[in-house]
Design a protein around this nucleic acid. Structure first.
Lengths: 105, 105
DNA sequence: TAAATATACATAAAATTCTTAGGTATATAA
DNA sequence: TTATATACCTAAGAATTTTATGTATATTTA
């Protein structure tokens, strides 16, 4: 995938869905992007832990049958930060798009 | 800046201009992006050396007064690779744009 | 004219993020 | 019953970036 966008992708998912667990995020992102974005577990879980450590995510572990799922949701700070990061990413997409369309002078 | 896009930016610049030196690339990128993309020297020079090591760039050092400028241009391989990377980046921009516009289901 | 800024290259340490590879365990499908 | 899917995790290494520093010449400003 393209480096540096994982946090924004996670925050976007949790902005759209009140709560999700890690595995669910990876599956949904893959599905919603038609397979374009594949989040590796070795990137996903450390990212979730980082975002939690920054106070952007809150967690709740829940038993489903004999399994444990760790649900994540945006904290108030995370809710704000998700909007910021989504906007900044969209701005970047625009800038990069313009840049790549530049013709030789 | 946003991670992972530096190589593409450099290749784009050298695709548009037959030859450029490092400092010129950083100044032009800043100017063309209205200040949005600022390439730090500590990222730029290692990136140029990497791209050269991969065989994508060719260099020629030239004396300008008492100074030396190291001019870079795309190798045939680099010319091909620049088009590939630009296309892939544009595809990513589209995918990310669509993804960020998704509404809650 | 002296000092500050711009030009022009470079590297090294540390930080960040990602891939690869492994580990554990339950549930379901073949 | 074996393979795949679900569900979490971490650690080593790779790759890229920031920060900091170094060197030196040229130009602008005070």
């Amino acid at each position: 995938m393209f480096r540096g966008s994982l946090d924004t992708i996670i925050l976007k998912m949790l902005n759209n869905n009140s709560e999700m667990y890690g595995y669910e995020i990876s599956q949904e992102v893959k599905k919603l992007s038609d397979g374009a974005f594949e989040i590796k577990e070795g990137a996903l879980y450390p990212a979730l832990h980082r975002l939690e450590a920054k106070g952007l995510l809150e967690t709740e572990s829940r038993s489903i049958g004999n399994r444990i799922r760790k649900y994540y949701r945006l904290s108030p700070k995370g809710n704000k930060e998700s909007k910021t990061q989504i906007s900044e990413m969209q701005e970047f997409l625009q800038q990069m798009n313009s840049f790549l369309k530049l013709k030789p002078s």
